[in-house]
Design a protein around this nucleic acid. Structure first.
Length: 475
RNA sequence: GGUCCUGUCGUCUAGCGGUUUAGGAUAUCUGGUUCUCAUCCAGAAGAUCGCGGGUUCGAAUCCCGCCAGGAUCACCA
């Protein structure tokens, strides 16, 4: 049996959104699972739409979530080059073969004449078929003009690894352009040649190509190429849950998620389970588990919405699974400026306290700020508190004073702070909802914070006393 | 318009003719964990399985029709 070889073949015409990355992921999974090879091929045959930096962006996106390729533009293999713009003579040779066999011919029409023919068909409410306007005699090809494939219309029935049995009638097979006037091949031609030459066994691509598959089937026959296995993936849907995800819907790319602090494990796991499951109730899969458990037969046929809520949950899950010191290392670019002057040990303690409420790294500044600087006094936090709002300011002030005196006696270990706080509860005859809320607000001036004793302990005695005194002046 | 694909809780999904009063996850709500936010735990609510026929003792599961949504009909991929 031939070794499994799959490829991801994006065009460098812009950013690669998460839908594209999922296609790459499935192709990679199929290859890895079969101990085969995964190839990255850049399909840069559209010079007009090409966007600078796309290729780099594509590679960085794949690398971030751990999809590594065995052959590609930067890793040469025996089937290179892996950029279509560097393979132009190959396509020309294959095109010439078709011309010689009488299966391709120069397009005799100007764009205007073509438009006219299309409009006529439209006016007659008939589908436009180029092959009904084939030239009587086929001119020789000079290697420069537009070349069309001479199709052999027929019905097709084929089996897609995901979609199952598919079929169409001969009306969808038409003569199409294989070489453009700028000397570049079209996708419809180039990918077939490359897949053959690069020994690709599975063509994995998304659903929009289903309707052009008969054209490809016709070409495989004309070229006498053995058809690879076809694996058609359903769409990743946008927020409306109907149309495929696109930049217009605010679709983000992998690097944007990276910049917000989503872990590669999250993205990999999330994308893999978007349209695939292993049939059990397992939701969390490691990279190794995905490779061993993935199965084309269990890929869904219907589209799946990219649900950010679920992504958030999964990311929180992976954050909690990560060891705190490892997490500190990974988040070092996300800490607020104010944290610069604090040592690693202090940040590690802070991180330990906020870890379980962190959903993505860029929330770190908001969650930790008061550990590094004194936030401005905000008395409305007291006024709007459901317990404290009922108390007189004079009573509040005396409670703060009493608390300060008691805490001055503490060594600020978590256990001693807990004891002192409990003592205060007894002595003041207040409920935790009142007293603890007050202490928490007065020392943080934040909407929310981690557990009280732990927070005070991390802040340290000197800082807490200082903050108490600032508060006493303000109240 | 032609051709093709899809259709189970808000969302991701399990289900492959009978252990299904349709399961899990997430989101939402409630209660508990000495304050808040979160985590965790417990619980609730949430799907007439797109609709209508048929086959069958029995259908989300098989067949037919319809409807809805989507894709595609480029010198884009």
């Amino acid at each position: 049996m031939k070794p499994v070889r799959t490829r991801f073949a994006p065009s460098p015409t812009g950013f690669l959104h998460v839908g594209g990355v999922r296609t790459a992921l499935f192709a990679w999974l199929i290859a890895r699972q079969a101990s085969g090879q995964f190839i990255l091929r850049i399909e840069d045959t559209d010079k007009v739409r090409e966007v600078d930096g796309s290729e780099k962006h594509i590679m960085e996106s794949l690398k971030y979530i751990g999809i590594e390729w065995d052959e590609g533009p930067d890793i040469n293999g025996k089937y290179g080059p892996y950029k279509q713009s560097e393979r132009l003579s190959t396509y020309k040779d294959w095109a010439q073969k078709l011309v010689d066999a009488g299966r391709a011919y120069p397009d005799p029409y100007s764009p205007e004449e073509l438009d006219e023919l299309r409009n006529q068909a439209k006016a007659a409410k008939k589908p436009f078929l180029f092959r009904e306007h084939r030239p009587k005699t086929m001119a020789a090809w000079d290697g420069k003009t537009t070349l069309r494939f001479k199709s052999d219309p027929k019905s097709y029935e084929w089996t897609d690894e995901v979609m199952g049995k598919l079929s169409t009638g001969p009306e969808v097979v038409d003569d199409y352009i294989i070489m453009k006037s700028d000397g570049y091949p079209t996708y419809n031609f180039a990918h077939i040649i490359d897949d053959e030459l690069m020994q690709i066994t599975h063509v994995i691509r998304s659903q929009e190509f289903i309707s052009s598959t008969p054209k490809f089937l016709n070409m495989y026959e004309a070229l006498e190429i053995e058809r690879p296995k076809l694996v058609t993936l359903p769409f990743v849907l946008g927020p409306d849950g109907k149309k495929k995800l696109s930049k217009r819907d605010g679709a983000k790319d992998i690097l944007e998620y990276k910049d917000e602090g989503y872990l590669p494990e999250t993205l990999l796991n999330f994308l893999a389970t978007l349209g695939w499951n292993d049939g059990t109730t397992q939701e969390v899969f490691s990279k190794e588990e995905l490779i061993s458990k993935f199965d084309i037969k269990r890929v869904n046929k219907s589209g799946a919405k990219f649900d950010e809520q679920r992504l958030l949950w999964l990311n929180g899950h992976y954050i909690r699974e990560t060891g705190t010191s490892e997490l500190l290392e990974k988040t070092k670019d996300f800490w607020p400026k104010e944290a610069e002057n604090f040592d690693e040990e202090y940040k590690l303690k802070v991180l330990g306290l906020i870890k379980e409420r962190l959903k993505f790294y860029s929330e770190i500044p908001d969650l930790t700020k008061f550990f590094f600087i004194e936030l401005p006094v905000d008395l409305s936090l007291i006024a709007t508190n459901k317990f404290l709002g009922k108390l007189e300011m004079t009573e509040i002030k005396s409670l703060v004073k009493t608390s300060l005196e008691k805490l001055k006696d503490s060594d600020f270990s978590v256990s001693d702070l807990t004891d002192k706080l409990n003592l205060l509860l007894h002595e003041t005859d207040k409920k935790p909802g009142e007293l603890f809320s007050l202490i928490r607000i007065v020392t943080t001036w934040a909407q929310s914070s981690p557990a009280l004793a732990e927070s005070l302990s991390v802040l340290g005695k000197a800082e807490v006393i200082k903050r108490f005194e600032v508060a006493l002046k303000a109240i």
